[in-house]
Design a protein around this nucleic acid. Structure first.
Lengths: 224, 224
DNA sequence: GTGGACAAGATCGTATACAATCCTGTGTGC
DNA sequence: GCACACAGGATTGTATACGATCTTGTCCAC
């Protein structure tokens, strides 16, 4: 699978995807030669891609050691959701007040895709789409700086969810996104803010980050 | 001034400093060979530094064109302060509730330095220290993810202030930072949040970003 | 004189080569 | 048998060389 002439952006996106979908495990080393060979480019390009991923906090770059898929600690996970709690509710309010009918249709299509992916038994794709839904909202709010931060946080969230999700069962998407979309249709900024806030709280609690450490994962206590 | 063996982090920091202190004007081109010669490293290292700066939005990277010191539009400037308004007040509240006496002393020293820099007629340094004060608060709040975002926003703010500041006169630091520190000493989270919010609003209005465009700066209308 | 085409120079993008660093396995001394 | 030292291999860090792209200055046709 050696595709030629890939750009560093493309490679970074492909690797990010693979991380989200849990096809590469956290902690896995990404050797420069190895990745370069896969995409048919030299280490120069791979290094550029790695820098981008490191900036998104999806990989850890250790000098003279290499690149490793990030393993967010539980503390880090909590912090990411704290940041989302600060940014997203207010952003949802703005979005609700500004959304055009075209925006509403796009969001509806998005939700349909999510449900379809779930029904088709592709939870990886459903998870991905679920993240994009949040990013779309930030875009509708027309605040590109905030949208960029949200995008970064969603990316890290995807990794976190892949790591810490306990009960993969039900409540996956419940119907939180549907409810939020309804408030958009009604231009109800107050309620949009509220719903987003509780949606994020639900997410955190479904991850079990509030409880005692289920997987602190220092090597020492992971093995003995 | 060819210092040998500089690392890409060091180069990025030096250039960032120069941008903050307005020693390099927005729009200036940073040629790879040129920068490499200054620091005595090859283009490889310079490119890594450029990527870091581009990620912080301090420079624009244009393919096959080169790196240029960013010129934040007024809209971008507003967005940066919108993001700060979402993050910093709540962060100040947490910080106020958590600050130790050592934290308070460090902040006090910081403010003293600011005043001293102003008195010594070094507004560039004062501006820089003023930014670090905000970053310190985010650190005290013990939310490294948010602190990182704040740091990024402060960096962009420094550039924005250098670009848009109209009345360089008085009100520079007024005494907003002193007032905030007092609420910390009193562990008054509510008031800390309030003061930070109004401090940011003051900053925006002192920049005149709310008014009609003083400098939209398309080349067309800049010249004729 | 104006407009477009072309060519030369400069600058960036990528690949490759070499140096520095780190990991690991082996061997030796105690 | 254990600990330490050292050497080999592998991997990253950096420099340099070459190719691609853009800018710009010149020339010619109209």
């Amino acid at each position: 699978m050696t595709e030629q002439g890939a750009t560093s952006d493309h490679i970074a996106d492909r690797i990010a995807e693979a991380i989200f979908e849990h096809r590469i495990n956290p902690g896995t080393k990404l050797g420069e030669d190895e990745v370069g060979e896969i995409y048919g480019v030299s280490r120069t390009v791979v290094r550029a891609a790695m820098q981008k991923l490191a900036h998104r906090r999806l990989i850890d770059l250790r000098r003279n050691r290499g690149a490793f898929v990030a393993q967010p600690s539980m503390r880090e996970a909590r912090e990411v959701f704290e940041a989302r709690a600060l940014l997203e509710p207010r952003t949802a309010r703005s979005a609700a007040e500004r959304a055009t009918s075209a925006d509403l249709e796009a969001l509806q299509r998005h939700i349909d895709d999510e449900h379809q992916a779930l029904a088709a038994g592709d939870p990886g794709r459903a998870l991905h789409l679920s993240g994009v839904f949040h990013i779309e909202i930030a875009r509708i709010a027309d605040q590109s700086t905030i949208a960029e931060f949200v995008e970064q946080l969603i990316a890290r969230s995807s990794l976190i969810i892949a790591l810490y999700w306990q009960r993969r069962a039900a409540l996956c998407e419940s119907h939180a996104h549907d409810a939020i979309l309804r408030t958009f249709a009604e231009r109800d900024g107050d309620r949009a803010e509220e719903l987003m806030k509780s949606h994020l709280l639900d997410l955190v609690s479904s991850l079990g980050l509030r409880d005692a450490p289920p997987a602190p994962r220092t090597l020492r206590e992971a093995l003995r």
